[in-house]
Design a protein around this nucleic acid. Structure first.
Length: 291
DNA sequence: AAGAGTAGCAACCGCATGCAT
DNA sequence: AATGCATGCGGTTGCTACTCT
């Protein structure tokens, strides 16, 4: 079989969504075999995760998302999947593309501007213990970073504390109009997709999934809770499943956060500049306070 | 109006990882 | 413990649309 490459057609999307509706996501190798799609299982998975999956927000990034990505990038580096877990409505691919296309350039410009400024003043942060050029340009950048960390925490906190009210309001959303399958609006919300995929929302067949898939599916379902559309999915979680996942997630985050030490030290070396300008002055709490 | 250059994004590729046997 | 397989992840490519000359 010759695998088809390039952009997906609406017909292929429908075929894939229909199949997932019936069988749930996972076992990607069998998808092209069972559906007749001339795509690799890998391609099907990618299409689902990056485009068809419920809860994905497409289009312009908000200023808040901008800042959050900048912060997360400073903290995590190019770990797009990890960053995506803090922005549940965005895919890692989306974040990566957005970073490469917009934010990196913007930051480079601002950093080079600041460097130039510092150079002109003959004050290139020689007193700093941090040697990274991006961090040498302190002052505003640092304070902005703190603000963004605070926002990241807040967003995460919000994601963990959404109440049923949100879910109820989300249930009042209109179902997708049949035939309205333009690539920009097609399954763009969990509400839409949930009507297409009731079986999947009930439960994916666990026995057919690897544990990493389970984790991933769990991730998707858990993280989608932070969106109004996703709350329905979250409600389908077993309580014990939820608890253990939260514990796992906490441990993951703690491990992740513990590696931030160097950066934190660099970033917060110059504490003197933190008192003004209306930026949120956020002490870096212990990681567990995120939860 | 047309060709060249550029930006944005979807999709692909290859390596890493984790699980099952 | 070793191997094979499925999936996840990050880097890269290539297509399309837009802008500039």
């Amino acid at each position: 079989m010759v695998e088809k490459k390039g952009p997906w057609t609406p017909e292929e999307d429908i075929t894939l969504v229909s199949y997932i509706q019936e069988h749930g996501p996972g076992n990607w190798k069998s998808v092209p075999i069972n559906t007749g799609l001339l795509r690799s299982g890998k391609s099907c998975r990618l299409r689902w995760i990056n485009y068809l999956r419920p809860g994905i927000k497409r289009g312009n990034f908000t200023q808040q998302e901008d800042r959050m990505i900048i912060h997360l990038q400073a903290l995590l580096g190019n770990r797009w999947a990890a960053m995506a877990s803090y922005l549940p409505q965005r895919t890692d691919n989306d974040i990566k593309n957005y970073w490469n296309a917009h934010l990196k350039k913007r930051l480079n410009n601002s950093v080079s501007d600041t460097d130039q400024e510092n150079h002109n003043r003959g004050a290139l942060a020689s007193s700093s213990s941090c040697s990274q050029p991006n961090i040498i340009a302190k002052g505003q950048w640092e304070r902005q970073l703190q603000t963004n960390i605070h926002m990241a925490k807040q967003a995460l906190s919000d994601a963990l504390s959404l109440d049923n009210k949100v879910a109820i309001s989300s249930h009042q959303q209109q179902p997708p109009q049949p035939g309205n399958l333009s690539t920009t609006t097609y399954p763009s919300s969990v509400e839409n997709i949930s009507r297409l995929l009731p079986n999947w929302l009930k439960s994916s067949p666990k026995s057919s999934q690897t544990s990493s898939e389970n984790t991933s599916a769990f991730n998707n379902r858990f993280l989608s809770r932070s969106t109004s559309e996703g709350f329905k999915n979250y409600n389908n979680l077993e309580a014990s499943e939820t608890t253990s996942f939260l514990q796992e997630r906490k441990l993951d985050t703690e491990a992740q956060m513990s590696s931030f030490g160097f950066l934190e030290n660099c970033v917060f070396d110059d504490a003197a500049a933190q008192e003004h300008d209306g930026f949120v002055n956020v002490p870096l709490d212990e990681p567990h306070e995120l939860f």
